[in-house]
Design a protein around this nucleic acid. Structure first.
Length: 677
DNA sequence: AGCACGCCGACT
DNA sequence: GTCGGCGTGCTC
């Protein structure tokens, strides 16, 4: 009955126990010559296909409450929906250390859990504004069973007080003796949220679950959630599978964020699993965003979700004025290797004005490093990666060429490796170069840079943010990480320097993501409201100022943007009007992955006799080679979810078989509801 | 996924 | 003669 943690084992294995064990019990069982952790899935009195005397006995039962029916149903659904093994899904939901502890070690850990001290005496809840009050009342009615449970989309701009709605709703769930699960897209966002929940409800009631914890911390907080001692569980996408025996409310903050979808292993969407979990338990779930995913927006429009709008920005800071700068009017510099200046003169002046007034500016450039590629003017050599179909990025600070796909790093050559020419030039601009150019464009200005390179050391993100908050920085340059969650009170100007490159991506979700990014970045400005008598501004440098996306952004009109996008999706037969799955394959040689996918397509049509599905031809991945692996993918589409699910389930065994005959294929995976295609 | 078994090259 | 390379296949 227990289900050990192996992807090759799709089905639970049978073991012998002296007496029936309740489903969900955690057990140690022998497997091969190892001992592994298992979950009792069901109890059967006779096993027809396996002789009872051949069954190995369950070794021992962990001294923990069994995982409840709600958790088991969630795991069963997730495994089936994302086409993964039951044991694999269960194992990914349990803390790894659990498998390694013996009875005495586990008992010691359980004893050391902080007990509910009942510290009480916590910060009082502030009064709510009308919109917040209305949202809380809807959730409250669902919590108290006065209205049927239905997801609530909390549509509110940055600074409109979404967190306060979460806190009030959580307080009501706690008062009913229920647990609350709060999901955020990134680890970076957990500390500030944890602080707010701890201040309101007491730190002893809050547990955190994310991949940044040490194994011991992760086990401790998982046990606190499982035992019910922690009533508030905050975390990233992996927290959606936590054991929460008294779960009564789920919050998904920034629900549109792509980080909720896992990009490896079982490619599950924590947001979608959270919605399923809430529906299965008939409990309320609130999805918060200023720029909801089109799926969620569509669900709200269809009446499947309720919508609660937060229109006012608390602190009365007006929305930033959006200025679209037409780059095609700018003179293009002549000469070899000439690059246009990073900022148009008007923008430069606006930043100088801010500096003079003691206000801050935020410059968004979605490209880290100094220059995306080096180029030899004599022989046209470029700094390609030998292991990937990608350029290596020039990082000036440590004089390296780095591949952002595989990590391959070398010292930058002093001369062209092909022809020996000494004159190799950087092409294009990243945040590092932008910072350098600003040093001469804005002499004396205090600059700072925030990207994956300047924040990789532990604590350096916090240190950089502290400098900004303390007013020690005039101009902050960064990649999209500056747009997320951080509250910059003194910022009155935000500029996106080159967002067009995100607009013309082959990915059909690119416009949706760009709109969310720009809206979110714009939200960083203007919270200073009271600080300055000048309205905050958001500048966008673009070659396409008439593009409907930028036009909608200028009016802060998400609804219009969503409507036009949904229309495009409908006519193109894309989600949410169709359901997609993507089969990906990696291979050691150039043809292997393609041949595997061709064979897979043939096997696929055999499990789709009614031709309910559309099988697209295999295509190379947008970056076909990474770390010497060739990547291909194949899209499968269906207007209905159920036939797609049935076909995928029938397809998986054939794919396992094809892997054996296609030797060069190293990996394959089905990505259900892929974010990018 | 582990961890076996199994069948071929360079070492004491 | 053996140590060990990773291909193949099984785990109740």
């Amino acid at each position: 009955m227990p289900t050990p943690q192996h992807s090759g084992l799709g089905q639970p294995l049978d073991y012998r126990a002296p007496a029936p064990l309740p489903p969900g019990s955690l057990v140690r069982v022998p497997l091969g010559r190892r001992q592994v952790l298992g979950v009792v899935w069901e109890t059967v009195t006779d096993s027809p296909d396996y002789p009872p005397e051949a069954l190995k006995p369950v070794d021992s039962v962990l001294a923990l409450a069994p995982l409840d029916a709600g958790w088991r149903a969630l795991i069963r659904f997730a495994a089936a929906y994302y086409q993964r093994g039951l044991g694999e899904m269960a194992a990914s939901a349990l803390p790894g250390t659990l498998a390694q502890l013996d009875e005495t070690q586990l008992a010691r850990r359980l004893k050391r859990l902080p007990t509910e001290a009942g510290v009480g005496a916590v910060a009082a809840a502030p009064a709510l504004q009308a919109g917040q009050q209305a949202a809380v009342e809807r959730l409250s009615a669902q919590l108290h069973g006065q209205s049927p449970a239905q997801p609530v989309l909390l549509w509110g701009l940055t600074g409109s007080g979404k967190t306060e709605v979460y806190l009030h709703a959580a307080a009501q769930a706690l008062a009913l003796g229920r647990q609350v699960l709060v999901l955020v897209p990134e680890i970076n966002l957990t500390p500030q949220l944890q602080a707010r929940f701890a201040a309101r409800f007491g730190a002893e009631r809050v547990a955190c679950l994310h991949s940044g914890l040490t194994p011991a911390q992760r086990l401790r907080d998982w046990l606190r959630a499982h035992s019910g001692q922690a009533e508030l569980v905050l975390g990233t996408r992996l927290a959606v599978l936590a054991s929460l025996p008294r779960l009564g409310l789920i919050v998904v903050d920034e629900e549109h964020d792509a980080s909720f979808k896992a990009q490896d292993g079982a490619r599950q969407s924590a947001r979608d699993l959270a919605v399923w979990r809430a529906a299965n338990l008939r409990i309320p779930i609130v999805l918060g965003s200023a720029t909801p995913s089109l799926e969620t927006w569509h669900n709200a429009q269809q009446g499947r979700y309720q919508r609660a709008d937060l229109i006012e920005r608390i602190g009365a800071a007006p929305l930033p004025k959006v200025r679209l700068v037409d780059l095609s009017n700018q003179p293009f510099p002549k000469g070899p290797g000439a690059t246009p200046p990073p900022l148009v003169p008007q923008l430069l002046q606006a930043i100088e004005q801010r500096i003079a007034r003691g206000e801050q500016s935020l410059l968004l450039l979605n490209r880290r490093g100094y220059a995306p590629v080096l180029h030899c003017g004599q022989c046209s050599w470029r700094s390609g990666c030998p292991h990937c179909s990608a350029w290596r990025v020039f990082h000036k600070s440590d004089r390296t060429l780095r591949c952002h796909h595989c990590g391959f790093t070398e010292r930058v050559p002093t001369a062209c490796p092909d022809c020996g020419n000494q004159d190799i030039a950087p092409i294009g601009r990243g945040t590092e170069r932008l910072e350098e150019q600003l040093e001469s464009l804005l002499p004396g200005a205090r600059l700072a840079r925030l990207d994956a390179d300047t924040t990789k050391l532990a604590g350096s993100l916090e240190a950089q943010l502290a400098r900004v908050h303390a007013g020690e920085v005039d101009v902050l340059v960064g990649t999209q990480m500056i747009a997320k969650g951080h509250d910059f009170r003194r910022v009155t100007l935000v500029a996106a320097l080159n967002p067009d490159n995100l607009l013309y991506s082959s990915d059909f979700r690119a416009p949706e993501r760009l709109f969310a990014l720009l809206m979110q970045a714009g939200g960083r400005a203007g919270r200073a409201g009271a600080l300055s008598e000048h309205p905050a501004e958001m500048w966008v440098q673009t070659h396409q100022p008439r593009h409907p996306l930028y036009q909608a952004l200028q009016r802060h009109d998400f609804a219009a943007f969503a409507a036009s996008q949904l229309e495009e999706r409908q006519s193109a037969g894309l989600p949410p009007f169709a359901h997609l799955a993507l089969l990906r394959a990696d291979s050691r040689d150039e043809e292997g992955a393609r041949d595997f996918l061709r064979a897979a397509a043939e096997a696929g049509r055999a499990v789709d006799p009614g031709e309910a599905l559309f099988w697209y031809p295999p295509i190379p991945h947008p970056v076909p080679k990474v770390a010497n692996q060739w990547r291909w993918q194949m899209l499968v589409e269906c207007s209905q979810r159920a036939p797609l699910q049935r076909a995928l389930a029938g397809w998986v065994p054939a794919l396992h078989g094809l892997k054996r005959t296609h030797k060069s294929v190293t990996r394959w995976a089905i990505d259900v509801d892929p974010l990018a295609i």
